[in-house]
Design a protein around this nucleic acid. Structure first.
Lengths: 210, 210
DNA sequence: GTCTATATGCGGATAGAC
DNA sequence: GTCTATCCGCATATAGAC
């Protein structure tokens, strides 16, 4: 963090603030103060707040892309486990994006297309993941069931952290962490998993519950 | 709408604007203009914007309560169908609440407890719904599976409409409507439903798909 | 209950010196 | 690249007449 450019520090700090408090609640003055530069200097690097948001969004896309690639290449339950973890960690790192999506898209309409494209890409990758598992005999599901499973997975990756904020932190398992999110998603798959793969899946799920 | 009091008209109009554009994007001036009264008059009825939001939130709670009661009293697939419809219509009518939850709770911390309580109540009702279906032999699921099913149902009712906004409107089925939301939720249940109840459930699901 | 007029503050963005 | 100082506009909230 010491040798990084001011520009990068602005992005880092903005990301942290946006994730914690939401885009709407964080002013450019606030960002400048946190980076320990003047508002004028902030403006030198990014003319508008929107530009900061858009840069962070692009970084988010770049961070998610390999997750989708990994998802589309899955062949066994183990890969699913790995993929889910990658994906949830990426989304958690940029949770400001889905934190208040409606607000984000309303305020920055330019992102609407990109956001929908991301969900669509996610949907395609998840569909592919399910189809491959079905082809490998790990999953037993009709075309329609695969379609719905993919939808369930994308819905979960997109919205889980928003939801987790509303659930009471009960005991050991924290639903707001990537671990529980992955556990939840594996559970969606479980009714359709057959044979010994199912035992292994349940073993993995058990590990999350501790 | 003609004979209603100014106070009620303010709430009605605010609800509409909040649902459509989000709380953050709607100013009190805007509300006053839409109701066709002066900002000063608006202030006479509600001292702060927060008061409007809190009143609407209480109305939302009142609207949801009977849905939870109905859910906890379910005994057959038909009742699930009815309950889901009621619930999604209620949430759709007050969709501003979950539209940008994080923002809502950050801006109006007083609502945080109430919002979490609502989710908890929803969780209890959904758990009861699943347990009753299991007892009636409609559902075959372990305790842990019932727990996860309930969680899935609550997650869906809470976040579905936020997510639907991100999906491309493809052809006939509009994922942003209460109908598709109910269809989606029934699908979550389906792997655990046994016997002729399953056929009936699939028949119901088919109706949504047209 | 309803209005007009206004106070107050904050957030985004800019100008211009160093 | 970085600063200080400042403008502009909007949103919340208020004062006081009718």
């Amino acid at each position: 963090m010491a040798g990084t450019s001011t520009r990068d520090r602005i992005l880092e700090v903005s990301l942290g603030l946006f994730n914690r408090e939401g885009i709407a609640a964080v002013s450019t003055h606030r960002i400048a103060a946190e980076v320990e530069i003047s508002p004028g200097n902030l403006h030198y690097h990014f003319n508008t707040k929107q530009q900061i948001v858009e840069w962070l969004f692009r970084r988010f896309e770049a961070r998610v892309a390999p997750c989708l690639e990994a998802a589309a290449g899955v062949a066994a339950i183990d890969d699913v486990w790995l993929t889910l973890h990658m994906t949830f960690e990426a989304i958690d790192a940029y949770r400001f994006v889905y934190r208040d999506v409606a607000f984000l898209l309303h305020e920055y309409p330019a992102l609407e297309g990109a956001a929908q494209a991301l969900v669509t890409a996610n949907l395609i990758a998840s569909r592919e993941l399910c189809a491959r598992l079905a082809a490998a005999g790990v999953l037993k599901a009709s075309i329609e069931e695969v379609e719905m499973l993919a939808l369930q997975m994308v819905f979960t990756t997109t919205c889980w952290f928003s939801f987790a904020r509303l659930t009471p932190r009960s005991g050991r398992t924290d639903p707001a962490g990537p671990g529980f999110a992955a556990y939840y998603t594996l559970t969606l798959l479980s009714p359709y998993v057959v044979g010994e793969a199912r035992d292994y899946l349940n073993y993995l799920r058990g590990k999350y519950l501790r």
